[in-house]
Structure formats: C-alpha cells, structure tokens
Amino acid sequence: MSRENTLVTAAWVEEHLDDPKVVLVEVDEDTSAYDKGHIKGAIKLDWTTDLQDQVRRDFVNKQQFEALLSERGVANDDTVVLYGGNNNWFAAYAYWYFKLYGHGDVKLLDGGRKKWELDSRELIDEVPGREATSYTASEQDASIRAFRDEVVEAIGTKNLVDVRSPDEFAGRLLAPAHLPQEQAQRAGHIPTAANVPWSKAANDDGTFKSDDDLKQIYSEAGVDWDKDTIAYCRIGERSSHTWFVFHELLDQSNVKNYDGSWTEYGSLVGVPVVLGDEPGSL
C-alpha cells in the first residue's frame, strides 16, 4: 500500500460525488454528527451499534458484517471512502475494520470531516437510498489485529507504540480530555512503549504529514523499523489512525492494532504497568 492507493483529497471526493462505484461512508465518535449534515451521497456507520457486538466486547462477526454492508448497499467491488470527525479517528478505525474483513478498495479522505468543513465545502441533509447488495466478507485478517497475550509478550521485544496523549501515557489522565475520566482500573502504560500521540502524525487541519516527516517522528521516538509493531490507545480508534500511518502510508509490514487497548490492559490482573513519562522496562 502507499499514500496514492489509500488516501484521497477533498478535491478527489468532489470529483467522484456522482460515481456509483464510490461509496462515501461517514463514521464519527459523535454518532449524531452525520445527522447534522454530511457529504452528498454518504452513508453512515455507527461504530457503537453497527460495528460492535452488543453483548460481548468484540466486533460484529463475519456474517453480521456481511449483513450490515449488504443492507447498506455496499458491494465487494465498490471503492469505499471513509471520513469522519475527530481527525478521522473512527474513520481510520472503520478503515482498519474493512481491511480486517478483506474489503478490496478502501480509502481515507485526508483530513476527514474537519478539513471538509474548514474548506467550507458542502454538507447536505439528504440520506441516500442504496440498493441492497449481497456482500461477502473474508475471515478476519489476524495479521493486523493484536490480542492481549501477544501484547504482553511484545514487551521489550517489539515496537509498542502508545498513541495516547502524554498525560494519559504518564497516568495523569485515564481518558482523552473531552471524555469523563473513567474506564480502566489503573492508569499508566505498557512497559517499553514509546509515546507518540496520534496527533504527531497529523497537521492541525487533520491531514497527514509527509512520509519523510512521519518517518522522522517515529524514528526519533525510538521505533525500530526492522521490528514488528503493535499500536494501542484507549479503545483502539486512535491507534487505528497510527496503524494506517505505519501500514498504509509507510508500507510497514507486521503492524497490528491492539483494539483492546488501555481499557483492557489497564484492567488486567497481574500485568506490568509503568507510570510517568519514560517508557520504562520490564
């Protein structure tokens, strides 16, 4: 993968607004954002109800994902272009999710909804009607999803990249500062993790920095490009953004997103935790 295949500009999206094989999909943390206006032709995915199992803490399974995309009118050969608020956090999460289930052509709108709004581009209220399809998903691609045991084993051996804010990393906050401070049982980070907040990869308007800048930022933080990498945050959405940078923009192989992230790790019994600004050791 590379920037040309995975990222599109707002201008590109405007040129493809009437292309029936390009499906715009809005995914926001604030799941009501779509209802306050969206890009013409865009459908909505609600990350809390559409993408999560409503009983267990896990994603919808293959059959549920197939049923979801079939009902929303997404076909296997469609180009799916994801965008959303919060600098594309949840759009990147959905991007990774589409990749997890093997969708062929997925792209991210650079800068997401914010850049679109800051450019004063048009948002409309009309909800498109798309004819149902018969969508077929692949089995989950385990090469891009990390689970807790693998994360514990990665301490001191793989690149662990904690993409939360410095205050969350150090244990001074438990959640991003726009959310109430609750969730994991303990604050802090996984020993040996480098703290590179997701925001280092983006400009103020939400677009990604250049490949050269990105490489320099992670190199300076101690990322060893010859090692496998696991990215994590609080619930796996911001780390999807960093997973996108590593795997899709910088073409790194063996990069996984740990979607359990701090809300799981920080509640595990018996695992090592480090407080403070330094990565720490085992």
Binding site: G85, S165, P166, P176, A177
Partner: peptide, 30 residues
Amino acid sequence: NAYVRLLDRSGEFTAEVPTSATGHFRFFAG
C-alpha cells in the same frame, strides 16, 4: 462549526471537539 483543541503545558495535543449547534465546547482536563 469551529474546532477547539486542548493542548497541554508543552503544547502537545490532548483533545479536540467540534463546537455544538450553540457554539459550545467542553473538556474534562486535568
């Protein structure tokens, strides 16, 4: 339709919210 970012004492990004229909925003900072 403004975006408000919360930067920590070192200037590092901590959070961002879009303003509401009434122009409001809120952070749970430390």
